[in-house]
């Protein structure tokens, strides 16, 4: 009797071990799932990267170019991607280098000369240029700016999690401020359809932002 009990115990223990190892292998496969899918990049990450770039560059055109360069560079060095980091993290890392390179270029000798000419041309008209260079000690601007950037990236990554159509409608309506009629015309949907999508997107975003930002 005792022997049977022991066997049963052993069996149940073994079952636990096998189920554990099964979990482990499924973990492994999900780890290895970090693969690059360049065809989805633009839809999934363009806005996120653009927000990241524009917070550092302050020029929409240049930011756009940098995002484009980032995608191309990512494509070029796709074989160096090991799958350790998520796709987005990897792309952000590339973009970071691009931003640094941009500033390095404008701060090179040639770039500096250009900037100086611009500046003196500006100050010729104004006269009192020293005051412009002094930081305002009471300014809260930098801090709030930083917080807003974090908020922006949080919202953007939440939008990225929405179904593509909802994300598209929401960003057209909320961020680009396009009128309801125009969106309906462009996407070929009727207004009640649009409001349903907006409603779903907003509810999902509330849930997504809930933990950190409310």
């Amino acid at each position: 009797m005792a022997a049977i009990k022991y066997e049963k115990q052993k069996e149940s223990k073994m079952r636990v071990v096998t189920s554990n190892s099964r979990n482990f292998t499924s973990d492994r496969t999900s780890m290895a799932k970090n693969q690059l899918q360049p065809n989805t990049w633009v839809d999934a990450y363009a806005d996120y990267l653009f927000n990241y770039a524009i917070a550092r560059i302050n020029d929409a055109e240049i930011a756009k170019d940098l995002v484009q360069e980032t995608f191309l560079a990512g494509l070029k060095s796709a074989k160096n991607y090991k799958g350790d980091a998520a796709e987005r993290t990897w792309l952000i890392a590339i973009l970071k280098r691009k931003v640094i390179d941009h500033y390095r270029k404008t701060n090179s000798k040639k770039g500096k000369a250009e900037v100086k000419i611009n500046y003196s041309a500006q100050t010729d008209a104004e006269g009192d240029w020293l005051e412009e260079q002094i930081a305002d000690p009471f300014s809260n601007y930098e801090h709030s700016n930083l917080e807003n950037e974090e908020l922006g990236l949080a919202i953007q990554s939440c939008i990225g999690k929405l179904p593509q159509k909802q994300a598209q409608v929401f960003s057209m309506k909320t961020i680009q401020g396009i009128s309801t009629e125009d969106i309906c015309k462009e996407l070929d949907i009727n207004p009640s359809n649009l409001w349903v999508m907006i409603h779903r997107a907003r509810t999902a975003l509330m849930g997504c932002l809930n933990e950190t930002w409310y």
């Binding site: 653009f50 927000n51 756009k64 807003n148 961020i175 680009q176």
Partner: peptide, 19 residues
């Protein structure tokens, strides 16, 4: 408050083409 920016659909299309 976040002052969100996003690329227009046309810009995205161009990016896709370049990619």
């Amino acid at each position: 408050k976040a002052g969100l920016n996003s690329l227009s659909e046309g810009d995205k299309r161009k990016m896709k083409e370049k990619l």
